[in-house]
């Protein structure tokens, strides 16, 4: 049985089911990260003293990672725009670039984490590091998840383009929405954890 409303929009919502599905999922993600941000505010305001992020964390590396993630958002949206123009080759270039930039982001985080562990700084060391590792760790999992989905669309998933290019374009758009959300979360994590 075919999955309904993957290409045609529903008359009652004006949307495809996939579009509604991804936005509802993102709404739940807002609440997930919102709960952690609320915990961060509670723990920080309840603490008699709190270190500035830049006294413990590596701001230049995090700034570099911010630039990397923002760049990956533009390559992601360009990948989708390429499919709208029915240019599969250009799509592959941009999607490959998005995955590569995600890989660069995770590699930088790996070095950041390694440096902290080497210095004996663990999530159990203090509340600041507990919040830092929880929020950035969860964010890293999202980056890795987004990369896996994007890699699928770059590889075996792209077979769908030959038989149903519109459905494939919709799938890539939904994957892009998740990727941009991950970028959006980092936009808030960067100043609140590293700079303040």
């Amino acid at each position: 049985m075919d999955i309904p409303y993957t290409v045609e929009v529903r008359r009652d919502t004006g949307l495809t089911n996939g579009k509604i599905g991804i936005w509802l999922f993102l709404a739940s993600e807002v609440m997930l990260f919102g709960a952690l941000f609320a915990s961060y505010i509670l723990i920080r305001t309840g603490s008699p003293s709190w270190p500035r992020g830049d006294s413990i964390l590596n701001v230049p590396l995090a700034t570099f990672n911010t630039i990397v993630l923002i760049s990956s958002s533009i390559t992601m949206v360009m990948a989708w725009a390429s499919l709208m123009r029915r240019r599969l080759g250009t799509f592959r270039l941009y999607m490959g670039g998005t995955i590569f930039l995600g890989f660069v982001f995770l590699t930088v985080k790996y070095f950041e984490y390694s440096h902290k562990f080497h210095d004996g700084l663990f999530p159990s060391s203090n509340n600041f590091l507990a919040i830092y590792f929880t929020l950035t760790g969860l964010h890293m999992l999202h980056v890795a998840g987004g990369m896996a989905v994007n890699a699928y669309f770059l590889g075996p998933g792209s077979k769908l383009y030959k038989t149903n290019p519109v459905w494939f374009t919709n799938r890539v758009e939904n994957s892009g929405l998740f990727w941009h959300f991950v970028d959006l979360v980092w936009i808030f994590l960067f100043p609140t954890l590293y700079l303040l």
């Binding site: 004006g14 509604i20 992601m76 941009h180």
Partner: peptide, 15 residues
Amino acid sequence: VACYFMHLVSEKKLI
């Protein structure tokens, strides 16, 4: 990011 990359400026009312 939300308005332009995620197309919220032109998104349907339900979203």
